[in-house]
Each structure stands twice: as structure tokens, then as C-alpha cells.
Measured scan of single mutants.
Amino acid sequence: MATGGRRGAAAAPLLVAVAALLLGAAGHLYPGEVCPGMDIRNNLTRLHELENCSVIEGHLQILLMFKTRPEDFRDLSFPKLIMITDYLLLFRVYGLESLKDLFPNLTVIRGSRLFFNYALVIFEMVHLKELGLYNLMNITRGSVRIEKNNELCYLATIDWSRILDSVEDNYIVLNKDDNEECGDICPGTAKGKTNCPATVINGQFVERCWTHSHCQKVCPTICKSHGCTAEGLCCHSECLGNCSQPDDPTKCVACRNFYLDGRCVETCPPPYYHFQDWRCVNFSFCQDLHHKCKNSRRQGCHQYVIHNNKCIPECPSGYTMNSSNLLCTPCLGPCPKVCHLLEGEKTIDSVTSAQELRGCTVINGSLIINIRGGNNLAAELEANLGLIEEISGYLKIRRSYALVSLSFFRKLRLIRGETLEIGNYSFYALDNQNLRQLWDWSKHNLTITQGKLFFHYNPKLCLSEIHKMEEVSGTKGRQERNDIALKTNGDQASCENELLKFSYIRTSFDKI
């Protein structure tokens, strides 16, 4: 039985969820670079991206490699990797027998973001014989899940209580170790020597080791999670996991709180800001991140802002960003909400898709409305799209047979046209069989910064309504002859009103 693990408890099935942008060198404390989270699957090609990484700022997932063999891993080693800020997950990587050479110096898994409450997941690794993470000293947050690894031993010899604050939620089941077939031998045991430290858990006094050649490092209890030197002297209180010299914040392997210019500090002093819960960055760093993602459509890219001495992905609820200094300031009234469309555009074809934009005031991208039916549609669209004030790209209304009016965009005031449909149009209306009105132009103002209007096959939309939009939106004169079809717009509506004058002759039985 794995020490510190839980057996036999019912657990939810383990679901495996399925960018080499360097964020800056980590400095003297770390020998390499800070790398983003990685999802490495199918083959070993991307694994080489770990070569210079000291910190993975995010998670590391290595999974679904069915053609790899043990010899493929023999020359692979990433000794610079010290810390993973989120979680480490391995799933069905064939041929991998140990992690001792792959990650010989991995010391800390912070667990800032977890995989279903777990910071370390080893699942269905069919050839893994031992973990071998002999320098792993601290899992700051989260638990361990090690399950269905039929060859995995050296679990009962690990004292997880020396690595985690609590072992109650560890789930370590259905491994070879369960069948008591392992016969784990710690260093020196074969020669009758006791080389590794022994600890007591559940009444068992057991030597602690990761492999037959690597003991588990056990520091004096007084050192807590700070770690200790090879001689057993406690590291500085700002260290986490390990250090090369005692009581020196510049000799830590990793930091308990924050890293700044080669030393570990309790908090980031001005003019620095907390970033990702582990390091200090200056304003320029946060500003660069903001600008890199301002026009990016890459998933996970955030326009970072500053709030409460932190550089964070977005302002919290009730705050909006001051564009001059990136500071989050309290909103006066309802907060603006910028919604970034991942692929640059979004099609609204149902109430469900409209709900995804609920509360958005600025759309960074283009909207395509293609709704053919739905219950209580006008009210639903207004509830979900009615706060949109600005669209950076274009607005396209296409084959939306259920629409009679666009009044559900009740606050839309600006279409920038930074991206144009077919390279020309910022407003595009095609084949809307029941569209009769755009907006009530006596109450609604709309500016279209650039781009043209396109109207074709809107049989109940009168040309007068379209011409009014040209005047109000500032697009009059931009359109070419064929942009607004004269014969297919309003051709099934009563669009022309003329005053009919009647004269009559009164007659009676005795007068003409």
C-alpha cells in the first residue's frame, strides 16, 4: 500500500482533458527560462521544448504516446526543470519506465491550478516501474492521483506527508504495488545497510526511497516546507523545498512566496507586481503582455491589467481597466465587458449561442446573426445582446428569417469595421425574408467608422429604411451602385405612401 494514499474509496472516473512563447529569463536562482504550460502528445517531438525550461508557468501534460519505446527515452533528460506552477499529468506514455532521468531536479509542483483537485496525476502508464522524482520536495496545493499503472512499484516507500501538507485526498490505487509483488529495495538494503531515512506512518517504520538508488530526502521537522541542505541544516524561511546553503534567500532552489532578481522575498516591493503567484514583474512586463494579447485571437491570451499590486489576466467583477495605466478602477454604474472572439468572429444561430455573449459591452471581433427560429426570440436576444455598444469588426445579418427588427441591439452605437466582410463591408444584410426595420432612427444613433453597407434580398425592408441608415451611420456616399439592390429590397412591402385627393359631386333626387 502506498504510504499516505487512500484505498478502496469510491472515486469519480478520471477524465483526461485534452506555445513556446518565453516569458522571460528567471535569473540567477533558476538555471534556465520560464516556459508556458505545455500539452505534449502523440510523439516526442515537442518534448524537446523543455530543454531550457527551469519553470513551467502553467501545467505540463505528457500523454497518448503509443509508439514510443524505452530506448526512445534513454537520452532524454531535462535537468534544468525545477518547478511547475500548476500540475504534472502523465497518461498512456508507452515505453517510459521512470522519471528519474527525465526530470531529475523537479523540486516543486505548486498546484496553482489543479487537474480535478490533483497536482500530480500518473494514470495508465503501462510501462512505468517507478516514479523516480527523487528531488520532489513540495506539492504546495492539491493532491496526488496514481492509478492503474500495472508495473509501478516504489510507492509504499514514499512518505507523501513530507511532500504535501495533507495526504487525506491522495488516491493511489490499482498499481502493481497493490499486489505486494514489488519487493522494493532501498539503497544499501541488499548489503544489509540502512542508507535512507525511515519514518513512521500508520504504525509502520519504513525506509523512504524513490528507487533502488535514490533515497527520499527527509528534512528535520523544524525546517517545515522550506527544505534543508545535504547536511540537514534548514533553508531560509522564504525558500521552498530545498537550498544549497542554509538561511540564505539567494540560495533557495525555489521560493515559498515570490522570486525577485535572484532572491526569494515575502512580497513584491514597489515598483514590482505579483505575477502568477510566484514571481515579481515590473510595469513594462505587464504592459507588454497586455499589448501582445490586445489584437491576438490565441486562446488563453489575456490583456493583463494591474489590481491590488498584482498583474492579473482581467479586472475583477465591479472594476474596469483604465487604459492609460492598466489599473483596475471601480465602475460607475454597470461595468464594461470586452469579449474577445477566439477566431475573430462568432455566429449567433440560437439563443444558446447568444447567451455566451451575455453582459458583453464591447465585441472584439465580428458578429454573424443567422437565426431561423426560436421561442420568445426578441426578448431572449435583447437579454443577451442588448448591452453590446461596440463591435470592432463587422455585423452580418444573414438568412435570419425569424427577425423582424434589429432593435434587440438596443445599445449598439459603434461598428468600427477594423475587419470587413469580403474585404469591403462593415454591415452586411443578406436574404432576411421578414426583416422590416433596422432601428427606430428617431431614437437610435449608430456610427460606422469604416467599410460599406450591403443589402440584398431583404424583400420587406424598404429602401427608405436603408437610406436612413446611410445618413445616420455616416456611410452615405461610400456605397457603390450594386451594394444596395434596388429590386430585391422592399419588393414585397408597401414602401411608397402617396396622399390621394378626392373630389365629389353631391346629387339628390331633384338636383344634379
Rank of each mutant, 00 (worst) to 15 (best):
K224Q: 07
H307N: 04
I185N: 13
C255Y: 01
C186L: 05
M83F: 10
A119I: 00
C293F: 04
C311Y: 03
H59F: 03
D261R: 09
L64W: 01
F91E: 02
H28Y: 11
L128T: 03
N202G: 13
G188H: 12
L240K: 05
C234K: 03
E57H: 14
I40R: 00
N202D: 10
C264H: 00
E124Q: 08
Q245R: 13
R110M: 11
F103R: 01
L90A: 03
V206P: 15
A119Q: 01
T320A: 08
R208V: 00
A230H: 11
W210R: 07
G32F: 10
N202R: 05
L155C: 13
D169N: 13
N202S: 12
C239T: 00
P220T: 11
H290Y: 13
G32A: 08
G203I: 04
H48M: 08
R297D: 15
T85G: 02
L60W: 00
P246A: 14
L289W: 03
S225F: 13
N117Q: 08
L240W: 00
E207T: 12
G183V: 09
K251M: 15
L332Y: 05
P334W: 05
L120I: 10
A156Y: 15
L99W: 01
R297Q: 11
H59T: 05
P269S: 08
N42W: 08
N282S: 15
P334F: 09
K292P: 05
N257P: 00
V34T: 08
D247M: 03
R74W: 04
E49M: 08
Q276A: 09
N117D: 02
G58C: 01
L44I: 10
I146P: 00
P270Q: 09
H127K: 03
G132S: 14
E130Q: 09
P187C: 03
I306C: 03
P187D: 08
E57S: 08
L60T: 01
N308A: 07
C331W: 15
E207M: 14
S112Y: 06
N170M: 08
A190C: 06
S161A: 15
G262Y: 02
D165M: 06
V218L: 12
E180T: 07
C286D: 01
N175F: 13
M125V: 03
V34Q: 04
C234I: 03
S317M: 10
V93L: 14
N257S: 08
S77L: 09
T107H: 10
L164P: 01
K80Q: 06
L29A: 11
R297S: 07
G241Q: 05
T85I: 05
D177L: 10
Q245S: 08
N43Y: 06
I122D: 01
I82P: 00
I146L: 14
R113L: 06
I163D: 00
F66N: 01
C53D: 00
D248F: 02
A198K: 11
P249D: 01
I306F: 14
H48L: 12
V200N: 14
G111I: 00
N170T: 07
K148H: 08
E231P: 13
P104L: 01
V144K: 01
M65P: 01
C243I: 01
G318H: 06
Y30L: 14
M321Q: 13
V167A: 11
K100L: 10
N257L: 03
M83Y: 03
T189A: 12
P197A: 07
L332S: 01
L155T: 14
N309W: 07
E151K: 14
F115S: 07
N179D: 05
V206I: 04
K224I: 07
E124C: 03
I122A: 06
H290I: 05
E97K: 07
D277P: 02
E49I: 11
G183P: 10
N309F: 10
E124G: 03
E71A: 13
N309L: 04
W160H: 01
E238T: 12
P316T: 02
S244Y: 05
R46S: 14
Y259L: 05
V218I: 14
D75C: 08
I56V: 06
C196E: 14
K191L: 06
E57T: 04
T45E: 15
G333E: 03
I109K: 00
L332I: 06
N308V: 11
H302Y: 09
R74D: 06
F115T: 05
C255S: 00
E124L: 02
I146G: 01
E168G: 05
D178K: 08
N309Q: 07
H302P: 06
D169Q: 13
G32D: 14
E124Y: 13
G95Q: 11
C255H: 00
L289H: 12
K292C: 10
P70L: 11
N43T: 07
E207A: 06
L332Q: 10
F258Q: 12
Y94T: 03
G183A: 08
C286H: 03
Q216A: 15
K100C: 10
L152T: 03
C234Q: 02
S284V: 05
N117H: 07
M137V: 11
I122Q: 01
N135F: 02
D72N: 15
L327S: 04
H212K: 15
T194S: 11
E180P: 12
G111C: 02
F66K: 12
V108A: 04
E314C: 03
C255N: 01
G183L: 07
H291R: 09
M38F: 02
D288G: 10
Q299K: 15
G262F: 03
H214K: 01
H290D: 02
V144M: 09
K217F: 14
N105K: 05
D248V: 03
T320C: 14
K310R: 10
K193T: 11
P249G: 04
Y30D: 08
G203R: 09
D248S: 06
G232H: 06
P31S: 15
S77H: 03
E130L: 04
